[in-house]
Write a protein that binds this DNA or RNA. Structure first.
Lengths: 226, 226
DNA sequence: TGTACATCAGTGAACGCGCGTTCACTGATGTAC
DNA sequence: TGTACATCAGTGAACGCGCGTTCACTGATGTAC
């Protein structure tokens, strides 16, 4: 066996967390072994302990990555779309992509290790979850301020429902190994959700608002196939 | 140690599955050990193998129980409420109760053991999930037939969104150890969902339909706190 | 009703395996002189 | 520029623990005669 190149701990920590995330994405959280991570990085298992104190700390590193990606998507969605509904739509699709291609967040968030693992980590995931929800609620509030989104609906409830547009579909997708088309299912759900939350354009007050409902209804409504 | 009373295999299989479900509900899926199950039943670990061939088969027994409860709720909701919206509401609240009191289904369905465990079991859970979705879609279709629910919305998408009313809240509830009030959050989401899917009562054609929207809007709408 | 035997559930000890972690040692890199 | 030494990352062997599973044995229950 060739000896691995000597590498700075800071860099190795990053490599190890990335490798762990990749393996979790592929084989699931609790199949993650220190040996597998080491192998992925190209070092020997015991060497992990030069850079992390324990497996637990590696997992903390993974959570950090997941948090960054989730919150990064919020920032990206803000930058990509000009209005609230567009941003929400963008965030939703990015979230679906994240689940599908890159990081099966469900594997992390729904994992047993999280629910039943030691408390500090559970609190941490809870916090990430809540932060994410809060960002979504903020997007919704902004939409309500400018009149895009109906003001009588609670942003907190709407943000929870927003996540509900992806989660069941994501689980189904995970379990069916790609038999279900996640993106399309999420899109269908979004169409209905969007139509529901946007301010009515029929009423006289907001007849020509910024929403696209009137212009191209066929893209907002999910038309029944048959 | 007192010797356990000799008991019929059929009965013991039931006891074992029940005990396993109870322990999963309390401590999570992958913390389930054969020893713990045996202890809960009041027998010795090795005795489990008189009644099941392996731990895997015990887990299959647990899935059977979960399936029964989920589908049982559908039947109960059908019996309890006269119309489709009422049945959906009833089913939703029963589902939330199931998660909260009895069987944390998330612990089973979202478990790593399911996603990454051996294929036959994953297929089985997928099937249970799909059956449940299909029953919900059927309730929705019935509602569309009698004009309670808007006909242009896809039952398949609506059923997925229906599950989305509980799932994020359930996960939050699990992680926060009851800090969040699951029932109330689900109720809020339902109010919005219900308002969205029910047929418009404003329009002339269905002015006096069977929905309760006009009569008591404050119970259907979630009013913003501030 | 009583006896002999087959069947079947219950038990404790032990095995085997995976896996996280420790430890003593190796060898490369950077720094002081 | 060259030498000596400290520092730190890499390695393989081994330990320890939990846990699913096996096995030989025990003892209770039901049945045939």
């Amino acid at each position: 066996m060739m000896r691995a190149a000597k590498t700075n701990t800071e860099i190795r920590q990053g490599q190890i967390a990335q490798a762990a995330l990749k393996l979790i994405a592929r084989h699931g959280f609790h199949h993650l072994s220190v040996a597998a991570v080491a192998n992925e990085v190209g070092i020997v298992p015991s060497n992990i302990y030069r850079h992390y104190q324990s497996k637990d700390q590696v997992l903390d590193g993974v959570l950090e990555l997941v948090s960054e990606r989730l919150l990064g998507n919020v920032a990206a969605a803000r930058a990509e779309a000009p209005n609230s509904l567009g941003r929400l739509h963008c965030l939703l699709m990015r979230h679906a992509q994240l689940v599908q291609n890159d990081v099966p967040i469900p594997r992390v968030v729904f994992s047993e290790e999280i629910f039943t693992g030691h408390k500090p980590r559970r609190r941490r995931v809870l916090r990430i979850f809540q932060q994410y929800l809060e960002h979504i609620a903020e997007l919704i509030r902004e939409g309500q301020c400018v009149g895009e989104i109906r003001k009588e609906l609670s942003p907190d409830t709407l943000s929870m429902m927003f996540l509900g547009l992806v989660q069941p579909a994501a689980i189904l997708w995970l379990m069916s190994e790609g038999e279900h088309d996640l993106t399309q299912q999420v899109q269908s759900a979004w169409n209905i959700y969007c139509q529901m939350i946007q301010s009515e354009v029929r009423t006289k007050e907001a007849a020509s608002s910024s929403t696209t409902r009137r212009g191209k209804p066929s893209r907002r409504f999910h038309l029944q196939p048959t």
